[in-house]
């Protein structure tokens, strides 16, 4: 009951801002408009995941090829929430050992291309890399750079597709069409659980509209954090992300080990000049 109220409220607020679009549709009942309904659910998803400030985690990345052989790598991720723009993230590789100390810094943006730098310890060199690669694989995995970039509402156009149950949980099924012409996808379909607004599953469709990948989130855990406005709020993070490429048969799992929030990270920790210090 509470959720649908929230949805209604958000739907109503939204109409205020997008009167033109709604007027074109000629609808009087806002929540019947699949675009507005999809948008309001995603706005609530973002609202619920706002206020965590910073987080750190170590994780294992398991790559499985079409023959079922696996290889593993260890990395650590630091994230900084940026109000009004995409988040900043720093990934540090511990294995494979030949790339130990390699650090990847990314400033994701809502409307413009992300800024990305790579530190190569062998040459002591920081390289600004092309942001055009967002559709490309992240460190040889089945995750594209854009899959790991922070979720921001204006990155997509939404359409509410209906309700579905996933593993006994009621979800909303929502279509996301990327606004960025450089996205590797024609669309994403995500399943958002109605209880906590967590993504349980996302399907990625390639630019020819064929199903490319399925990402499943599991082992969700709530992390209580004191937000800047004094409220104590729980943030949900999946400890396991499994992505399968239907076209190649390859798969990648991300297994998060220790999520910690509000660890005192600041803008200074995400300065390009700090990359060479990443340990």
């Amino acid at each position: 009951m509470k959720q649908s109220m929230t949805t209604l409220l958000f739907g109503a607020t939204l109409v205020g801002f997008t009167t033109l679009a709604v007027a074109d549709q000629g609808t009087t009942e806002q929540t019947d408009d699949p675009a507005a309904r999809g948008l309001s659910i995603m706005q609530e998803r973002k609202a619920r995941d706002t206020g965590w400030q910073s987080s750190e985690a170590s994780l294992e990345m398991l790559l499985t090829n079409a023959q079922g052989q696996t290889s593993s790598r260890q990395l650590r991720m630091k994230n900084l929430e940026v109000a009004g723009d995409g988040d900043k993230s720093l990934s540090i590789f511990d294995t494979p050992l030949d790339v130990k100390g390699t650090a990847f810094l990314s400033f994701s943006h809502v409307n413009t291309a992300d800024d990305q730098w790579l530190y190569l310890p062998a040459l002591k060199r920081v390289k600004r890399i092309s942001s055009r690669n967002k559709s490309g694989p992240f460190m040889g995995s089945e995750f594209a750079y854009e899959d790991l970039s922070s979720f921001e509402v204006p990155k997509y156009q939404y359409r509410y597709l209906g309700e579905e149950e996933i593993a006994g949980q009621a979800t909303w099924k929502i279509e996301n069409i990327p606004n960025d012409e450089y996205s590797g996808y024609s669309k994403l379909v995500s399943w958002i659980d109605q209880q906590e607004y967590r993504v349980l599953k996302t399907q990625y469709y390639d630019r020819k509209s064929a199903l490319l990948k399925t990402l499943q989130f599991s082992d969700y855990q709530a992390h209580p954090v004191d937000t800047p406005n004094g409220e104590r709020k729980s943030f949900w993070r999946a400890n396991q992300l499994s992505i399968e490429n239907h076209q190649t048969g390859k798969a990648t799992q991300l297994i998060f080990k220790e999520y910690r929030f509000n660890t005192g990270l600041s803008e200074a920790d995400f300065n390009k000049s700090k990359l060479k210090r990443a340990r």
Binding site: L123, K124, R125, V126, K127, R128, S266, A268, D269, S273, R277
Partner: peptide, 21 residues
């Protein structure tokens, strides 16, 4: 020896520094 602060850093000893693109 490397000493790190948010707004400044100091290193003393033998090191390698790369400039260029």
């Amino acid at each position: 020896w490397v000493h790190l602060q948010d707004s400044w850093e100091f290193e003393l000893g033998i090191g390698i520094v790369y400039w260029g693109v």
